[in-house]
Amino acid sequence: MHKSEVARRDISNDVLEIEDHAEVALDPEQRALLASDVSWLEYRAEFRRQMIQQGFLKHPWRSIFEADMIFTLIGHKWLQGEILTVKQVATYFEAFTSDVTITRHIDDMVASGTLVRTPDPKDRRRLLLMPTQRLFEIGRIFLQARKEIARRHGYVYDPARASAGE
């Protein structure tokens, strides 16, 4: 157990009163992270509305949060030189959702022009998920927004400090 974790049996079920909001045991960095997450949710909802209104996506997908996770995984792995299969993506998300739901999301992504299913030349039974330029344009917009939201809440990219564990 991490030193900052509390054993589950020690956590109170007492209702918190709104007047006590400043007393909740979250440090300023944790509060900033929470505020950053809420800012991201607000941005994400508005971004989806804009993408649909402007016709940027050919087909809107079911759950934006599951779709974001799938896009993130496929894009990140591709940037690292790894092409994922439908089965690999389903395995990553098996704790969150079913294979059928993942397949439906991928169907939506193919229809929206962000992914292409391509048979693996080494094993034609396997389907590789190839990102399109459209996926990375959406990703670039998303990541720029995430950077700006993080900065508004006090976070700065500092790889030297991160590698030192600070």
Rank of each mutant, 00 (worst) to 15 (best):
E5M: 01
T103K: 15
L57Q: 07
D27T: 05
A45T: 10
P60F: 06
E5V: 00
L135E: 01
A7S: 05
D123R: 06
E94C: 08
D37H: 05
L26S: 03
A45F: 02
E46G: 07
R152N: 12
E166G: 03
S36Y: 01
P159C: 04
I64Q: 10
R49Y: 04
D107P: 01
Y157T: 15
H105Y: 13
I18A: 11
L34T: 05
A160I: 14
T97P: 04
K3D: 05
E19Y: 04
E19W: 01
L127N: 10
D14A: 13
P121C: 01
T85L: 03
A90K: 03
D14S: 10
F65E: 13
D158G: 07
H76M: 12
V110E: 12
K122M: 00
R125F: 05
R48I: 06
A160Q: 14
R126Y: 03
K122P: 00
E17C: 05
S12G: 05
R151K: 14
I138R: 14
G81S: 08
Y155C: 01
V15E: 11
I106E: 07
Q54P: 00
L73K: 08
T72H: 11
G81Y: 08
S163G: 04
I106C: 02
V24F: 02
S112P: 03
Q30R: 09
A32L: 02
L73W: 06
G75F: 04
Q54L: 13
S4C: 00
S39V: 00
Q53R: 14
F93Q: 08
R49L: 10
V89A: 03
I18P: 02
F65Y: 14
P28M: 02
I102H: 08
V156W: 10
K3T: 02
R49N: 12
G55Y: 05
L33W: 03
H105I: 09
F56D: 09
V15G: 02
A145N: 07
H105M: 05
M51P: 00
L57R: 04
P159A: 06
W40E: 05
D107S: 12
H76A: 14
D20K: 09
K87F: 07
W61L: 09
V156I: 15
R104Y: 12
L143C: 10
D20T: 05
T97H: 12
A111T: 07
V100H: 12
